[in-house]
Amino acid sequence: MAEQVALSRTQVCGILREELFQGDAFHQSDTHIFIIMGASGDLAKKKIYPTIWWLFRDGLLPENTFIVGYARSRLTVADIRKQSEPFFKATPEEKLKLEDFFARNSYVAGQYDDAASYQRLNSHMNALHLGSQANRLFYLALPPTVYEAVTKNIHESCMSQIGWNRIIVEKPFGRDLQSSDRLSNHISSLFREDQIYRIDHYLGKEMVQNLMVLRFANRIFGPIWNRDNIACVILTFKEPFGTEGRGGYFDEFGIIRDVMQNHLLQMLCLVAMEKPASTNSDDVRDEKVKVLKCISEVQANNVVLGQYVGNPDGEGEATKGYLDDPTVPRGSTTATFAAVVLYVENERWDGVPFILRCGKALNERKAEVRLQFHDVAGDIFHQQCKRNELVIRVQPNEAVYTKMMTKKPGMFFNPEESELDLTYGNRYKNVKLPDAYERLILDVFCGSQMHFVRSDELREAWRIFTPLLHQIELEKPKPIPYIYGSRGPTEADELMKRVGFQYEGTYKWVNP
């Protein structure tokens, strides 16, 4: 592979701008107003304001973009700056750019259920340069409990009458099928589907988006991507930290609602779906819905739930269990780990287990898709061969690698495990991989909904998990304890083995 010439960040961002501006969906010269509902909250200060700053800094926003914060707290732009700027990672050389960014910011205080507050917000936006005809993007960085009041008031008082209007809704989209349907029906009564952007930030990850290209742009994968060759698929999300004093919020939802029903299920769809007619948003989402419709409700015998306990040999936070978090209700049975087996009941995947695993306070930070292939028929190497695996590593250190057998150097035919490896950090030294939120917010500006969740996708996802969630809430089974920093409950490994996964433990990928 030829040595790549190092590029400056300015040059890299210039390439990104060229890609972005050559499309006809990006209205570079139009006025846009980006409204952050819930501007005083954690999500706004840690993710949304920093993301908008990065896009502005790199010249990736339309030229005439204004940012308006809205929340109940009586704040000023200076207050917003004070709480969000520490997350910007701005350099001293960017000081003038930073001043320009905050000059485009404003803030309006108001209630979430008060019509007069929204009329005041609308008047404020109209007073901005060309504000009355601007395109408006409303980001709901809010708890779902206020979605209905907020969307109703936005629709009645704050819509642009000339430009387009788009609304970005953060997960969780309800707690179960019934609450999700209620919320979807409410929002759909106010906005068209092409105006609604239900954001799952995992769909903005580079390697998640790469799944489609790997599958449908490489001839070698087509013939082997089926039940005849693939023994099982494992989708993993692991965090090495616990709730760390923020367990009160987590306890309301648990690990299945927080990660599995959305992030992991979306990745499953991209692995299992048929080739779409095109890369058009609805063509892709149509195929994802077909996959979900082929999955039956989760069966309790295919589920393992766990909850982390303190590690007596650990240090600091590792010595504390979930129930030691003062914000967690006493005696909570909320799971911090889950392993679930699903089956896609169609011709391509009949009988292939899709194993979804996620948890907190585990032994490493990792998100990946792992396809394990069947054993080689007619073994001539005296059971020395391990199964081939194709691994798409989402985070950290984005990579695609194939675990395969090669001859060990020497005189004899002794096979050993090795890999074919594409590590993004080595291959793409001159490429700026956008943060997931950067990519998705740019998608909203461009009107691309491919990486957002459609209402029928959402409904099918909740259909699969709601009976299990209701059973857990009714019966309150005690989750299996696992030690902070471990791989999780051993019962999860036993479940995976029972459905056909072979864990060798003899080879570990190392970032080159």
Score class of each variant (00 low, 15 high):
residue 2 A to I: 12
residue 3 E to P: 10
residue 4 Q to K: 12
residue 6 A to D: 10
residue 6 A to Y: 10
residue 6 A to S: 12
residue 6 A to P: 07
residue 6 A to I: 07
residue 6 A to F: 08
residue 7 L to F: 04
residue 7 L to D: 08
residue 9 R to G: 10
residue 12 V to S: 13
residue 13 C to G: 04
residue 13 C to R: 09
residue 15 I to F: 13
residue 16 L to G: 03
residue 18 E to A: 13
residue 18 E to M: 07
residue 18 E to P: 05
residue 19 E to F: 04
residue 19 E to D: 04
residue 19 E to Y: 07
residue 21 F to M: 10
residue 21 F to G: 06
residue 21 F to R: 12
residue 22 Q to I: 12
residue 22 Q to T: 08
residue 22 Q to K: 07
residue 23 G to A: 15
residue 23 G to P: 13
residue 24 D to K: 06
residue 24 D to V: 11
residue 25 A to R: 10
residue 27 H to R: 12
residue 28 Q to Y: 10
residue 29 S to E: 14
residue 29 S to G: 12
residue 30 D to H: 06
residue 30 D to P: 03
residue 30 D to M: 11
residue 30 D to L: 08
residue 30 D to Q: 09
residue 31 T to F: 09
residue 31 T to M: 09
residue 31 T to I: 11
residue 31 T to K: 13
residue 32 H to S: 05
residue 33 I to K: 01
residue 33 I to F: 11
residue 34 F to L: 03
residue 35 I to N: 03
residue 36 I to E: 00
residue 37 M to I: 12
residue 38 G to V: 00
residue 39 A to D: 02
residue 39 A to T: 01
residue 40 S to T: 07
residue 42 D to H: 14
residue 42 D to L: 14
residue 42 D to M: 15
residue 43 L to H: 13
residue 43 L to P: 03
residue 44 A to Q: 01
residue 45 K to F: 11
residue 45 K to Q: 10
residue 46 K to C: 09
residue 47 K to C: 11
residue 47 K to M: 13
residue 47 K to G: 06
residue 49 Y to L: 13
residue 50 P to C: 02
residue 52 I to C: 06
residue 52 I to P: 00
residue 54 W to F: 06
residue 55 L to V: 02
residue 56 F to L: 02
residue 58 D to F: 04
residue 59 G to T: 02
residue 59 G to F: 02
residue 59 G to D: 04
residue 60 L to S: 04
residue 60 L to I: 11
residue 62 P to F: 03
residue 63 E to A: 10
residue 63 E to T: 12
residue 64 N to Q: 08
residue 65 T to P: 04
residue 65 T to F: 10
residue 65 T to A: 08
residue 66 F to I: 05
residue 70 Y to M: 09
residue 70 Y to A: 05
residue 70 Y to N: 02
residue 70 Y to P: 00
residue 74 R to N: 08
residue 74 R to I: 11
residue 76 T to K: 08
residue 78 A to I: 05
residue 79 D to F: 03
residue 79 D to L: 04
residue 81 R to Q: 04
residue 81 R to K: 09
residue 82 K to H: 13
residue 84 S to H: 06
residue 85 E to F: 06
residue 86 P to K: 05
residue 90 A to H: 07
residue 90 A to K: 03
residue 91 T to W: 04
residue 92 P to R: 06
residue 92 P to K: 10
residue 93 E to A: 08
residue 94 E to P: 00
residue 94 E to A: 03
residue 95 K to L: 12
residue 96 L to Y: 14
residue 97 K to I: 08
residue 99 E to I: 05
residue 100 D to V: 05
residue 101 F to I: 00
residue 102 F to G: 01
residue 102 F to A: 02
residue 103 A to Q: 13
residue 103 A to I: 08
residue 105 N to A: 08
residue 106 S to K: 04
residue 106 S to D: 03
residue 106 S to H: 10
residue 106 S to E: 04
residue 108 V to W: 03
residue 108 V to I: 09
residue 109 A to Q: 12
residue 110 G to I: 00
residue 111 Q to I: 07
residue 111 Q to V: 10
residue 112 Y to R: 03
residue 112 Y to V: 03
residue 113 D to I: 02
residue 115 A to D: 10
residue 116 A to G: 08
residue 116 A to M: 11
residue 117 S to E: 07
residue 118 Y to H: 04
residue 118 Y to M: 13
residue 118 Y to R: 00
residue 119 Q to K: 10
residue 119 Q to T: 12
residue 120 R to M: 11
residue 120 R to F: 05
residue 121 L to N: 00
residue 122 N to G: 07
residue 124 H to M: 06
residue 124 H to L: 09
residue 126 N to W: 03
residue 126 N to G: 10
residue 127 A to C: 12
residue 128 L to I: 07
residue 128 L to E: 03
residue 129 H to Q: 11
residue 130 L to K: 05
residue 130 L to T: 12
residue 131 G to M: 04
residue 131 G to K: 06
residue 132 S to M: 10
residue 133 Q to W: 04
residue 134 A to M: 05
residue 134 A to E: 13
residue 134 A to N: 11
residue 135 N to K: 15
residue 136 R to I: 03
residue 136 R to L: 05
residue 137 L to M: 14
residue 137 L to A: 07
residue 138 F to I: 02
residue 138 F to V: 02
residue 139 Y to T: 03
residue 139 Y to N: 01
residue 142 L to W: 10
residue 143 P to Y: 04
residue 143 P to M: 06
residue 143 P to S: 04
residue 143 P to F: 05
residue 144 P to W: 12
residue 144 P to D: 14
residue 144 P to T: 11
residue 144 P to Q: 15
residue 145 T to A: 14
residue 146 V to F: 11
residue 147 Y to K: 13
residue 148 E to R: 14
residue 150 V to Q: 00
residue 151 T to S: 08
residue 152 K to I: 12
residue 153 N to E: 07
residue 154 I to M: 11
residue 154 I to C: 05
residue 155 H to D: 06
residue 155 H to T: 05
residue 156 E to M: 12
residue 156 E to Q: 07
residue 157 S to E: 09
residue 157 S to H: 12
residue 158 C to K: 00
residue 158 C to W: 00
residue 158 C to D: 01
residue 160 S to H: 06
residue 160 S to A: 08
residue 160 S to P: 02
residue 161 Q to R: 02
residue 162 I to R: 12
residue 162 I to E: 09
residue 162 I to S: 09
residue 163 G to R: 02
residue 165 N to C: 10
residue 166 R to P: 01
residue 167 I to F: 13
residue 167 I to D: 00
residue 171 K to I: 04
residue 171 K to C: 06
residue 172 P to W: 03
residue 172 P to F: 05
residue 173 F to Q: 07
residue 173 F to V: 03
residue 175 R to D: 09
residue 175 R to C: 13
residue 176 D to C: 09
residue 177 L to M: 12
residue 177 L to I: 09
residue 178 Q to L: 09
residue 178 Q to Y: 13
residue 180 S to Y: 07
residue 180 S to D: 14
residue 180 S to C: 01
residue 181 D to C: 06
residue 183 L to M: 11
residue 184 S to N: 09
residue 184 S to C: 05
residue 184 S to A: 09
residue 184 S to H: 03
residue 186 H to A: 08
residue 187 I to R: 02
residue 188 S to T: 15
residue 190 L to P: 02
residue 190 L to S: 10
residue 190 L to I: 09
residue 191 F to H: 00
residue 191 F to W: 11
residue 193 E to S: 03
residue 194 D to S: 09
residue 195 Q to R: 02
residue 195 Q to E: 09
residue 195 Q to G: 04
residue 195 Q to C: 09
residue 195 Q to W: 03
residue 197 Y to L: 01
residue 200 D to A: 10
residue 200 D to I: 14
residue 202 Y to C: 15
residue 203 L to E: 14
residue 203 L to C: 14
residue 204 G to S: 15
residue 206 E to F: 07
residue 206 E to I: 06
residue 206 E to P: 05
residue 209 Q to N: 15
residue 209 Q to L: 08
residue 212 M to F: 13
residue 213 V to Q: 14
residue 213 V to K: 06
residue 215 R to M: 02
residue 215 R to G: 01
residue 215 R to Y: 02
residue 216 F to Q: 08
residue 216 F to I: 02
residue 218 N to K: 00
residue 220 I to T: 06
residue 221 F to N: 07
residue 221 F to A: 12
residue 222 G to F: 07
residue 223 P to T: 14
residue 225 W to Y: 07
residue 226 N to A: 06
residue 226 N to W: 03
residue 228 D to G: 12
residue 229 N to S: 11
residue 230 I to C: 06
residue 230 I to R: 02
residue 231 A to V: 04
residue 231 A to F: 03
residue 232 C to V: 03
residue 232 C to Y: 04
residue 233 V to P: 01
residue 234 I to Y: 15
residue 234 I to K: 14
residue 235 L to P: 01
residue 235 L to V: 07
residue 235 L to D: 02
residue 235 L to H: 01
residue 236 T to R: 02
residue 240 P to Q: 08
residue 240 P to Y: 05
residue 240 P to C: 12
residue 241 F to M: 15
residue 242 G to K: 04
residue 246 R to H: 13
residue 246 R to M: 09
residue 246 R to S: 13
residue 247 G to C: 14
residue 247 G to E: 08
residue 247 G to Y: 14
residue 250 F to V: 05
residue 251 D to G: 07
residue 251 D to V: 01
residue 251 D to T: 05
residue 251 D to S: 07
residue 252 E to T: 12
residue 253 F to A: 05
residue 254 G to Y: 00
residue 256 I to D: 02
residue 256 I to T: 04
residue 257 R to P: 13
residue 257 R to A: 10
